[in-house]
């Protein structure tokens, strides 16, 4: 299953998904969030929700010099934190901008498509679906 942005028009920019993501990792705040909501250049234009779209052939994994990002069977990648040295090549490789960064740990924040954020979205913007995911925030 993969996380998808199914109805961006209903996004009100509350960022409850971002808090949910870090909280699922047993931390309060935003430091570990693998999902990001920002305006489309001013609140009047609405929002984009940036999520990993679970590429079947993920460029982030290809870019990793340490082999720390292993392709997931359902698309996207899993991070081997011990193998990662924090070089940031994965972040550079993701055009969508869905590889987020934990500055304190100097490690990428990689979405595992668990759907915890979607269960907290109050407005039906996010859903865990059977891919392929064809939206990227819109």
């Amino acid at each position: 299953m993969q996380l998808d942005v199914v109805d961006i028009d209903r996004c009100v920019g509350c960022q409850v998904c971002m808090f949910a993501c870090t909280r699922r990792q047993n931390i309060a705040g935003l430091s570990k969030s693998c999902i990001h909501v920002r305006s489309l250049g001013g609140m009047e234009r609405g929002f984009t929700v940036i999520t990993c779209r679970a590429c079947p052939d993920p460029p982030c994994a290809l870019a990793c010099p340490k082999g720390a990002l292993k392709p997931r069977p359902d698309g996207g990648v899993l991070l081997d934190r011990d193998a990662c040295d924090g070089c940031g090549a994965c972040r550079q490789a993701c055009l969508i901008g869905a590889v987020f960064w934990d500055d304190a740990a100097n490690r990428p924040n990689i979405c595992i498509h668990c759907g915890y954020c979607a269960t907290h979205c109050p407005h039906g913007v996010l859903e865990l679906v059977k891919g392929p995911v064809t939206h990227a925030g819109q």
Binding site: V12, G13, C14, E44, H123
Partner: peptide, 16 residues
């Protein structure tokens, strides 16, 4: 035309 929310508020009471 649009509703907005404050950060970390699920309500979205801001009417545009």
């Amino acid at each position: 035309g649009r509703r907005l929310a404050c950060a970390h508020c699920p309500v979205g009471c801001v009417h545009i």
